[in-house]
Design a binder for these strands. Structure first.
Lengths: 119, 119
DNA sequence: AAAGATACATAAGATTCTTGGGTATTTAAT
DNA sequence: ATTAAATACCCAAGAATCTTATGTATCTTT
């Protein structure tokens, strides 16, 4: 039996962009705080994106043309909604496919199940 | 269809220790160059561990008591064999289990297949 | 009134990888 | 014979990305 409260940080490294892009593809648009909350909820707290990691990543994705933003006021508080550009759509597909392929390869490499014919 | 010559480096980050520990658990003992060659072979070139990443990781694992080494001379050339300590055995199991769990979570999070009951 | 949740953001430091060296021996090709 | 490629180790500057800590401000619940 194996218990795990939260994954070691090194494991999550490199998957953050993929997680964000895929969530946005699914939900249409989200704001930063919402993303961290949703990921935490969906993973039973096993993946907790810190804001120090989230916001720089969102900004970099926006700067790179993958995301676009619109501000909205909730009362006096600003909320910044992010959504995928068409380029972001493509990148999201690519990254998810690559990660799926990678996980297949890792499964084989770690001998976690008999070889499946890594198509 | 999805083609992939080599995974983006960011994806591989954080799995290097796990790959090394698991290989050593399987093979008993290996030397550095052999590890890179084996991983490249097993993954059809999709994961290529550079020596700049490999050796610092091996040294750090040794320093941390997970690995022990013995030198052998092949002609005039030194070869440094690495093997798991008993602590390394435990760490290897832990890390492989954690990665398997993580990949399950990621599959669910990325909606790559219907929910399996993430036990 | 205070505490906690919501919501954004930045920055110093740590970690880990990439890139580009360096040294040296052995084997295969020209 | 000589060159190129493979084997085999290593280090270090720089880049990328995350952690940790901090800052500001509003809204909601106790």
């Amino acid at each position: 039996m194996y218990l795990c409260l939260m994954y070691s940080s090194e494991l999550i490294k490199g998957t953050l962009k993929t997680i964000i892009l895929n969530l946005l593809r699914d939900k249409g648009r989200m704001y930063g705080y919402e993303i961290t909350a949703k990921v935490k909820e969906l993973t039973d707290g096993k993946i907790q994106i810190t804001e120090g990691a989230l916001y720089p990543t969102l900004h970099s994705l926006e700067k790179n043309g993958e995301l676009e933003t619109e501000k909205e006021f909730i009362g006096k508080r600003v909320r910044k909604y992010y959504s995928l550009t068409s380029q972001g759509q493509e990148t999201a597909s690519q990254k998810v496919n690559e990660l799926a392929d990678f996980m297949n390869t890792m499964k084989f490499l770690l001998d976690l199940e008999p070889k499946l014919g890594n198509a």
